[in-house]
């Protein structure tokens, strides 16, 4: 009985099913993580179109390497985050984008200046304190380096010339702020 039951599916059916479940899995991954991952990319790459291209490349890499993910080494999000960061950084570093990169950096500076001067109008959120604004400048810098640019805490300590212990405390303090904002 079981054997005959099995035979109800042709190989094509099975392939089709496999494909479908794959697509479902992809869909779940995409729906859960695409926005956050795009947010990570957008911290390095301002242009919307390029950022989405990088997101697409990242998802293709995530998909093709999903067998390599080892849950004993870290969270799935962390693993995807790494792929996304590396893909963004690769893009920024690729030679043909040297020039664009300069422009992007310039834009980043403008963005930075805008934010510190509070002249940027964000129509969606006027009157609402944004997460970024709730972080102290030093906390935000640390979180951004660690999170969006993938610096280790040791590298951050060296780069900003502050003790490693301070880096750890500030990263944690920043995350406590971020967490409170979710609860609100």
């Amino acid at each position: 009985m079981i054997l005959t039951a099995k035979k109800k599916y042709t190989e094509d059916d099975l392939v089709e099913m496999l494909k479908k479940s794959d697509q479902t899995l992809f869909s779940i991954l995409y729906d859960n993580y695409s926005r956050a991952l795009l947010g990570v990319i957008k911290k390095v790459i301002i242009d919307d179109e390029i950022a989405e291209d990088v997101l697409q490349d990242s998802f293709v890499k995530i998909w093709n390497n999903k067998a390599m993910y080892d849950s004993s080494k870290g969270r799935l999000y962390t693993w995807m985050l790494n792929i996304v960061r590396n893909t963004s950084i690769d893009y920024m570093r690729s030679k043909q984008n040297k020039f664009d990169e300069k422009i992007q950096r310039g834009e980043n500076v403008v963005h930075e200046v805008n934010r510190t001067n509070n002249v940027e109008m964000n129509t969606d959120r006027i009157g609402i304190k944004t997460i970024v604004d709730s972080l102290k400048e030093d906390q935000r810098k640390l979180i951004d380096l660690a999170y969006f640019e993938g610096y280790t805490q040791e590298e951050i300590a060296e780069r900003l010339e502050i003790p490693l212990g301070t880096v750890k405390t500030r990263v944690r303090a920043a995350l406590i702020v971020l967490r409170k904002l979710i609860k609100e």
Binding site: L38, G39, V40, R75, Y147, L175, R179
Partner: peptide, 15 residues
């Protein structure tokens, strides 16, 4: 993780 994702999503449109 949720805090970090929320932070990245802030000010980011959906793709």
């Amino acid at each position: 993780e949720a805090s970090l994702m929320n932070y990245a999503e802030e000010n980011t449109k959906l793709p």
